[in-house]
Computed example of a mutant assay.
Amino acid sequence: MTIRRREPENLVRAHGLDLRLLHPWPGLDTPFRGAWCVLRPGDVTEAHAHHEREMFIALSGRAEVVCGDGRYELAAGDIALMRAGVEHHIVNGHREDFSYYAIWWGPEMAAEFLAGRPEAAS
């Protein structure tokens, strides 16, 4: 068994939030990628769309996911699924951190994983 600790001191600032990528992680070969993300009070992530699907698993706090013309509250314990190609960003208008795992996957990652080359998708 291997445990990877959160290590909040190792978060890096990127895309409007603090994060730590799940990959690379020696010995972890998966058809997906992920990151532990912390959105500080007042933070807004960069608006973006991508060809992968994405899932947000809320761990603590709350925030709003802005997707198209919709705005959806996400709170600890909630899971949100984003279709590929949809522009989105997350807003923390609250007084506490919003912590979540983001996991994304797509056909290219799956094909590379099945071909035995997961490092090519990094």
Rank of each mutant, 00 (worst) to 15 (best):
W104F: 14
P107F: 01
I57V: 15
G68K: 08
D78S: 12
A84W: 08
E54V: 08
A47S: 15
T45H: 04
H88Y: 09
V91K: 00
R20H: 07
P118C: 03
E7L: 15
H89T: 01
H50I: 07
I3Q: 12
R40C: 02
I3G: 04
G68N: 10
V66W: 06
P8T: 05
A63Q: 04
L19E: 11
P8G: 03
R40K: 12
D78T: 05
M55S: 03
R83K: 12
R33Y: 06
S60I: 07
T30M: 13
L114Q: 14
E52V: 07
V66D: 00
R6Q: 10
E7N: 13
A111V: 10
G68S: 11
M82C: 10
E112H: 11
H23L: 07
P31M: 01
E87P: 15
H23V: 02
R13A: 13
D29G: 06
R83M: 08
A111N: 10
E9C: 07
A58E: 04
T45G: 10
A14T: 12
I90L: 09
P8H: 08
H94S: 03
R62G: 06
R13Y: 13
R71D: 02
D78F: 04
A120V: 12
G16M: 03
D18R: 14
V65T: 09
V66L: 11
I3W: 10
E73V: 13
A75T: 13
Y100I: 05
A76R: 10
D97L: 02
G70E: 14
W36I: 01
A14M: 12
V86C: 06
A120D: 07
R71Y: 00
P31Q: 06
A63F: 00
Y101C: 07
F56E: 00
A76N: 10
P107G: 08
E52D: 13
V65S: 02
D29R: 12
A58D: 09
G116D: 11
G27W: 01
R20T: 06
H48F: 10
A111D: 14
L19D: 02
R6K: 10
A35P: 03
A84E: 13
V38R: 15
R95Y: 01
R6E: 12
S99L: 04
G106D: 15
E54H: 10
F56S: 00
V65E: 01
A58Q: 10
